[in-house]
Simulated scan of single mutants.
Amino acid sequence: MSLTVHHEPDAERYAAYEGDELQGWIVYDRVGTTVRLLHAEVPPVMRNKGVGGEVVRAILDDLRQSTTDRVQPVCGFVVMWMRRHPEYADLTTR
């Protein structure tokens, strides 16, 4: 599976695609300079294939490279993923 993750600011989400087919997404909002990752959605047929993790990684990499914003993981999946990847801990709000 070859996924690409796109930031879709008008929809306040990052979405993963395989070709033109939407495979999953994470919605967010902003409070000042904090990006709150609110909810991850991956269709049942695509679960446990790394789609959600790819979206989280893309969001965090994007924020690390392009802004000084911080992340507040609200979604349980994102919280769990970030605990397993402490290399992104510096991006979280204190």
Rank of each mutant, 00 (worst) to 15 (best):
T67N: 07
T67G: 05
T92Q: 15
L38Y: 00
M80H: 15
G53F: 05
Y28L: 03
V79R: 15
P86A: 04
G52Y: 07
V71Y: 01
Q65F: 05
R64A: 15
D62Q: 06
R13M: 11
L38S: 00
V56F: 06
V51D: 03
E8H: 09
G24Q: 10
C75N: 10
G50V: 02
M1A: 10
T68Q: 14
N48F: 03
Q72E: 14
R13S: 05
V79C: 08
A58D: 10
V31I: 06
L3I: 03
D90R: 08
R30W: 09
P44R: 13
R57A: 13
G24K: 10
Y88W: 14
D20R: 02
P9L: 06
T34P: 01
V56Y: 07
V31R: 10
R83G: 05
A40P: 01
R13A: 06
P9T: 04
D20Q: 11
P43I: 08
A40Y: 02
S2L: 11
R13N: 03
R36L: 00
Q72L: 15
E12H: 15
V71A: 04
R13H: 05
I26P: 01
V51I: 13
A11T: 02
Q72Y: 12
A15Q: 10
G19N: 09
K49A: 14
I59R: 03
G32V: 06
R84C: 02
E41K: 07
A16T: 04
V56W: 09
A11Y: 12
G50F: 04
M46C: 09
R70H: 12
L22Q: 12
L63N: 08
D10N: 13
H6M: 08
E8G: 00
V42D: 08
L22P: 01
